[in-house]
């Protein structure tokens, strides 16, 4: 393994995919965030927690610019982070992934990780815009969300290990096993404790855009890492031989 090349392409692929994710979010998710924060502000005025003054709006504009400018940067940080995990898993799983080149293999793995580590947890604990969420429960919600990602991810890994013991057609058994396992986890895990007080059409449209954004990340990280891996082949070492 050419370790330096491996590390560089893994981190660059993650950062580039994170940049794509941040940019997509900037285009399609930001309008919903603005709308939700607008409702949040109206609630603050109605409850008397804030006053509708020029000073309020000056402060609001200041932190909204800071928050919006962080969208792409946070995308790059998150992308590098998730990309590091993706690169590790790809390096270990490359030889058993289907596909005749590294782009196809990376896209297959990205699809599996998107499904098990994002979509399944999202169905249980979907993304919410600002105005939804009680700050008192944020730690509990973070624990629940992370736990479900871990349960789904490690569950998939466990059933994959189990699948090695089965022959061709019987490989469906561990797949069904994962389905059963995650269904049980889905019903056993506690619900999000917070009530949704924002309009449901706003929440649903926000969630749809959120899925599109995250999906853009997983497709990009698969394509980028696959392209780099195909070209630079970090798994191959060239050693001189003398006869």
């Amino acid at each position: 393994m050419k370790t330096a090349i491996f590390l560089i392409i893994v981190l660059i692929s993650g950062a580039l995919a994170g940049f794509v994710h941040g940019t997509v979010n900037f285009a399609i998710v930001e309008p919903y965030l603005d709308q939700a924060i607008g409702i949040e502000n109206q609630n603050l005025f109605a409850s008397g927690e804030a006053e509708d003054t020029p000073q309020f709006w000056a402060e609001y504009e200041g932190y909204r610019i800071w928050q919006k400018s962080g969208q792409v940067l946070a995308g790059v940080i998150l992308g590098t982070s998730i990309g590091a995990l993706f690169g590790l898993v790809f390096a270990f799983a490359r030889n058993v992934l289907p596909g005749n080149n590294d782009i196809k293999k990376a896209l297959v793995l990205a699809g599996i990780m998107w499904f098990t580590m994002y979509l399944i947890p999202f169905l249980k604990y979907p993304a919410n815009p600002p105005t939804v969420g009680d700050s008192e429960t944020v730690v509990l919600r973070a624990i629940l969300y992370l736990s479900f990602i871990a349960i789904s991810g490690f569950g998939a890994l466990g059933f994959y290990q189990l699948s090695k013991k089965f022959q061709n057609k019987k490989k469906i058994i561990p797949l069904v096993g994962y389905g059963l396992f995650i269904s049980i986890a889905f019903f056993v895990m506690p619900e999000n404790p917070d009530e949704i007080t924002a309009p449901m059409n706003l929440v649903n449209e926000f969630r749809m855009m959120s899925v599109l954004g995250v999906t853009s990340f997983w497709i990009s990280v698969g394509v980028f890492l696959g392209l780099f891996w195909n070209r630079l082949k970090p798994h191959q070492e060239t050693t001189p031989s003398f006869n």
């Binding site: 979010n25 998710v29 800071w66 928050q67 940067l73 995308g75 604990y125 969420g133 944020v138 995250v214």
Partner: peptide
């Protein structure tokens, strides 16, 4: 928190 706020919501993390 504020810098990553928008990505936190968009990526599905609990925020506040």
């Amino acid at each position: 928190h504020e810098l990553t706020h928008d990505m936190r919501h968009a990526a599905g993390f609990p925020c506040h």
